[in-house]
Amino acid sequence: MVCFPHAGGDVTAFAGLAAALAPELEVWAIRLPGRGGRFGDPMPDSFAALVSAVLAGLSPHLRPGSLFYGQSFGALLAYEVARALPSELRPRIVVPACAPPPPAWPGPTPPTSAGAAELLERCGLATALPDDTAIRELAVAAIRTDLTVCRTYRHRPDPVPGFAIHAVAGAQDRGLPPAVVAGWASATTGRFTTSTEDGGHLLATPLTSGPATLLRTLHAVAAQTPQCGVGCV
């Protein structure tokens, strides 16, 4: 299973999920520019360029039968990367979590520093980050960078891909009701299912809701798709 982080997120967001799903699923995660060991790498200046960069890094490691999981901003990125892959490398299923369907993007303009507190609150990170101004400023800057890139996204309705989609909503996600998440049905010609899990906007992030809210759903979703064994992604 390949995980795509939320705006401003990093691979650490999925550490708890990876531990909980092992050994049934091997979890990989995408590290975007500007965080962790890639702190000095510049973010591409457009969403299309970001998709191309992820494709270049991920494609050599993919095998048929993978699953893509993305939360919030990562859901849109996971979907567009899946669409851009050649048919033999596309995932069997994409799981967008707590994200509006592609036609609804891009969202509102990223707030200025004056809206930092609101931005962290909306992303579920207000109480998760240390009470340190410098750390919070770095977090807000990373979120704003990702959302600024997302502002360049332009939805292409055709061709609609055929991989399955299971869209997930958070029961306590104040900004995104399940009815909006269900709009992902129009993003595939394949099988579509949806569920609402106990948790907030960042369902898989250990510092907020905890990965346990997703475990049963992800196990069930994986069981419905062909398995390719350890190391398949």
Rank of each mutant, 00 (worst) to 15 (best):
M1W: 01
P5L: 15
A7H: 11
G9N: 06
T12D: 07
A13I: 10
F14G: 01
G16T: 03
G16L: 06
L17E: 03
A18Q: 10
A18G: 11
L21D: 10
A22T: 06
P23N: 14
P23G: 14
L25D: 09
L25T: 02
I30H: 04
R35S: 12
G37V: 15
R38M: 07
G40E: 08
G40N: 11
G40L: 15
P42H: 02
M43W: 05
P44T: 10
S46D: 07
S52K: 13
A56G: 10
A56Y: 08
A56C: 10
S59V: 11
P60Y: 02
P60K: 01
H61P: 02
G65Q: 06
L67M: 11
G74A: 15
L76W: 05
L76N: 04
L77V: 07
L77I: 05
A82N: 05
L89I: 04
P91H: 06
P91Q: 08
R92I: 00
R92D: 06
I93R: 13
V94C: 09
V94H: 04
V95C: 08
P96R: 14
A97G: 05
A97H: 03
A99D: 02
P100N: 05
P102A: 00
P103Q: 09
W105Q: 12
G107T: 08
T109R: 03
P111D: 02
S113M: 12
A114K: 15
L120Q: 03
E121R: 15
C123G: 08
L129D: 09
P130E: 00
D132P: 03
T133D: 14
A134S: 13
I135F: 12
E137M: 11
A139S: 13
V140A: 12
A142C: 12
R144Y: 00
D146Y: 01
L147I: 04
L147S: 03
V149G: 01
V149M: 01
C150P: 00
R151I: 05
R151P: 02
P159A: 07
P159I: 02
P161L: 04
A164W: 01
V168W: 05
V168I: 13
V168D: 03
G170L: 06
G170K: 08
A171W: 03
P177V: 05
G183I: 12
T188N: 01
G190K: 03
G190T: 02
R191E: 04
F192M: 10
S195Q: 11
S195W: 04
S195T: 08
T196M: 06
D198S: 14
G199W: 01
G200S: 00
L202F: 12
A204Y: 00
P206D: 13
S209T: 09
T213P: 09
L214V: 04
T217R: 13
L218S: 11
L218T: 12
H219G: 07
H219C: 12
V221H: 04
V221D: 02
A222K: 00
A223D: 14
Q224M: 15
T225I: 11
T225E: 13
Q227V: 11
V230K: 15
